[in-house]
Amino acid sequence: MIPAAFDYVEAESVDAAIAALTEHGDEAKLMAGGHSLIPLMKFRLATPGVIVDIGRMEGLNSIDDRGDHIAIGALTRHMSVETSELLGAEAPLLKHVASQVGDPSVRHRGTIGGSLAHGDPASDLPAAILALGATLVAKGPGGEREIAATDFFTGFLETALADDEMLTEIRVPKMAGAGWSYQKFNRRAQDWAIVGVAAVSNGSTSLSLVNMGPTPMRASAAEAAINGGGSIDDAAAAAADGASPPDDLNGDAAYRTHLASVLVRRALTEAQG
C-alpha cells in the first residue's frame, strides 16, 4: 500500500501554509503528523495533488495558561496533551481522552489539530472538545476567526474550515474541579470506539457522543434531560435521540443505541459521583 505521487510543499509558517492552500486550492491538503491522512493515502482513498507539510514548522505546539482558558497549539502531539500537568489540573477530560487515541506510537506523532480537522465521527478528541465547550481558532487569508466546537463538525469527515484555512489553536475553558468521564467502548484497545461518551459536569452537564452519526455530536436530548432535573436513567434513555448510528461489523444501529444509553449512564454516574 503506497500513496499516489504528489507534490510536496513545506510550510515554515502559518502564513506560508495559507499561501500554499490559496495557490493550490482543493488539490492541496495540509499534513501535520500525517496520522489521519497517510493511512488514507496509502489506500489511495485520498490522492491529494499537493501535500503542504505543516508538521515541521516552529510553534503551535505548546499548551499555555491564558487565564480563563488553556490554549493548545494545533500541532501539539497527543502525547504532549496526555502528559500535560496543566491540562491535568484544568481540563483532565482532554488529557485522559488524548491517552485513549490509537496507541503510544501513534500518539507520539499524531496532533490534536490534525485529528480535529479530520473530523472523524469515530475519533476520541472531537467528543472531548464538544463536551468541554472548546473554541477552535482558524486562520485564513482574511485573518483569524473563532469557531465554537459545536459548529466545527459539519459533515462526514467535513469541518467548518474553508479550503484555504488552517486550524491553529484549540481553546479549552478551565474547569478545575469539574466532574468528568470518558467511556470508550471498543473490542480492541487500539481501535476506534464502537461508541464513546464524554461527559463534563460543572454546574450543568454536557455530553457528547463518538461514532453515533456522521459527525461527532453532542447528546443534546440527554443533556436536556439531566440539566432539566431528570435522573441519570432519564438521560440514559435519551442518549441516542437525534443520533443516526452506523451499522458495521462491530455493531448495528440498535446495539449502538443501546450502548450509548449504557455509556451515558456510566459517564454521568462517574462525572457526577
Binding site: M31, D53, H108
Partner: peptide, 20 residues
C-alpha cells in the same frame, strides 16, 4: 516501530520527507 528523537513511531505512517 522505530524511534524518532527517542520516541516510538510507526515508520509506515511517516513520510521520509517528514523525517528530514
Amino acid at each position: 516501530t522505530i524511534h524518532i528523537g527517542g520516541e516510538s513511531v510507526k515508520s509506515c505512517t511517516v513520510l521520509a520527507v517528514q523525517a528530514r
